[in-house]
């Protein structure tokens, strides 16, 4: 047996052991792969609808970052609170959002999550404890901290998932909120999705000391780095982090290092990074990687993996159909929900 093959065999065995140790069952593994396909397909479709002039305004695609959303989604309770950032499609889907209502919102329809008033950047489902994406970079930090304060005062067992990008950690509210969350031992899991760029600025250009997560030290908050393109590793770290927070030990900080394939938003011409860099990250694609690992560990068949992909495509097709057949808001309702 060649050296390379030996190493590969060992990695497969390690993956199998890891999955087993985490107690991940076959159905869960399939669900993880399916949800990653679903997110990727949702965004690809949204992008196509944008190109076709059906999605109005801009949006922020997370393709390449699906493992963070899915690893996290599996580690939390359905009723945990979610405070999201502007690149948040994946997290909502992974936490169980209805893609029909999401797609309807993208098309600005009356039966979308926000009745067409919010769009991609403000998707929320307050009844499901999804407190919304945010158009203001860093705007969610104090909200997550405040939601944590409420949960603590209510003596509830939920935790708050505060998700944000690398760029937002240079906003003042990042520091205000981490300090207050640590002072009061609030049940907030801070999740930094470091995709290497804040719009066009490389983290190394804008953050004086890396990794970002070490900033948590300043507030006595435990932190951990994780490969954000490895869905099993993300799940593993999130599991521990969630347990720490839910047990009343105060906040925890996870930095998931990942990469976005597409531009910041629809106006991005990708002038600040090379095609080689993008291609190199595509080699580490979280979906292909997970699928390959499952295959090699004989945890899934090619057929099942393809079926999951096809199923995701079908669900998104019907989400588009649902959205396209949904009504536009009536212009006469413009002033609804305005109380002052």
């Amino acid at each position: 047996m060649k050296e390379e093959q030996k190493t590969e065999k060992k990695e497969n065995a390690d993956f199998f052991k890891k999955v087993e140790a985490l107690g991940l069952k076959q159905a869960q593994l399939e669900e993880m792969l399916y949800t990653m396909y679903l997110i990727r397909r949702f965004e690809r479709m949204a992008d196509q609808l944008y190109a076709a002039g059906k999605v109005h305004g801009t949006m922020h695609l997370s393709a390449g970052q699906e493992a963070v959303a899915v690893g996290l989604g599996l580690a939390v309770q359905d009723d945990d609170y979610l405070v999201n950032h502007h690149r948040g499609h994946g997290h909502f889907i992974a936490k169980g959002a209805d893609v029909n209502l999401m797609m309807a919102e993208f098309l600005g329809k009356e039966n979308g999550y926000c009745r067409g008033r919010g769009g991609s950047m403000h998707i929320a489902d307050v009844e499901a404890n999804n407190l919304g994406a945010n158009g203001i970079v860093g705007g969610g930090f104090p909200l997550a901290m405040g939601a944590g304060l409420a949960v603590q005062m209510q003596k509830a067992d939920q935790i708050v998932l505060g998700i944000f990008g690398d760029g937002s950690t240079n906003e003042g509210v990042f520091h205000e909120s981490l300090n207050m969350a640590a002072l009061w031992k609030l049940p907030v899991l801070f999740i930094c999705e470091n995709n290497k760029y804040g719009m066009s600025m490389d983290v190394e250009q804008v953050i004086a000391k890396l990794p970002i997560a070490q900033r948590a030290d300043a507030y006595g908050i435990p932190w951990e780095l994780v490969d954000g393109n490895d869905v099993v590793a993300v799940f593993d770290v999130m599991n521990k982090a969630v347990a720490h927070v839910r047990a009343g030990n105060g906040p925890y900080f996870v930095e998931a290092q990942t990469y976005r394939y597409f531009g910041h938003s629809k106006s991005d011409r990708n002038l600040y990074r090379s095609q080689e860099e993008i291609a190199a990250w595509r080699e580490k694609d979280p979906i292909f990687r997970f699928r390959a690992a499952l295959r090699e560990a004989n945890l899934i068949t090619e057929e099942t993996a393809d079926e999951l992909n096809e199923k995701a495509n079908g669900v998104i097709e019907s989400a588009v159909e649902f959205a396209e057949n949904s009504p536009e808001p009536n212009v006469n309702t413009l002033m609804e929900y305005v109380y002052a």
Binding site: L131, P142, L149, A150, Q154, V173
Partner: peptide, 26 residues
């Protein structure tokens, strides 16, 4: 001290804490 919640000098933090807590039923 839980209900008379004294804060650091962090006005955005105070405003956001109140907003987040209000969204969650306080």
């Amino acid at each position: 001290p839980e209900r008379i919640r004294e804060t650091p000098i962090s006005e955005a933090g105070i405003m956001g804490a109140a907003t987040g807590a209000a969204l969650v039923g306080m």
